[in-house]
């Protein structure tokens, strides 16, 4: 069912919006995959994720990784149901705005 268009200023910033858009069709993605795909720095992405966690839009989990030589863990990121709802409304509003321009 299409979402009602609804702007959400908290995910209006482009990096936040792009992150939500990547996560929306997935269950989760690894931090490194998100860095590569979004082509942003690790620091930038970390800050974006922290902000979205505070909003309750994103959830992270950490696992030990046999691929890492050190003791650091790999992080996976996923949208919460609240995040999906917010994103769906915001993207619907953007698409409506873009289609209005196209006309």
């Amino acid at each position: 069912m299409p979402a009602d268009p609804r702007f959400d200023e908290t995910i209006h910033a482009l990096t936040r919006l792009r992150l939500c858009a990547l996560l929306r069709p997935l269950d989760a993605a690894s931090f490194s995959t998100l860095v590569d795909t979004l082509d942003v720095s690790e620091a930038n992405l970390s800050k974006t994720i922290r902000n979205l966690i505070e909003l309750g839009y994103v959830h992270t989990s950490k696992q030990t990784s046999p691929e890492r030589a050190d003791s650091r863990r790999t992080t996976t990121v996923s949208l919460t149901s609240r995040g999906r709802t917010a994103f769906d409304g915001h993207i619907a509003a953007l698409r409506k705005l873009a289609s209005t321009e196209a006309l």
């Binding site: 858009a21 993605a29 795909t37 209005t100």
Partner: peptide, 26 residues
């Protein structure tokens, strides 16, 4: 909140499409 204009909307949608193409290629 200043709602985005159509230029931003178009740019955002293009960026999202590029990101998703990269993800799909992976």
């Amino acid at each position: 909140f200043d709602q985005p204009d159509s230029a931003f909307a178009l740019e955002a949608l293009v960026r999202i499409d590029v990101d998703r193409r990269r993800l799909a290629a992976r």
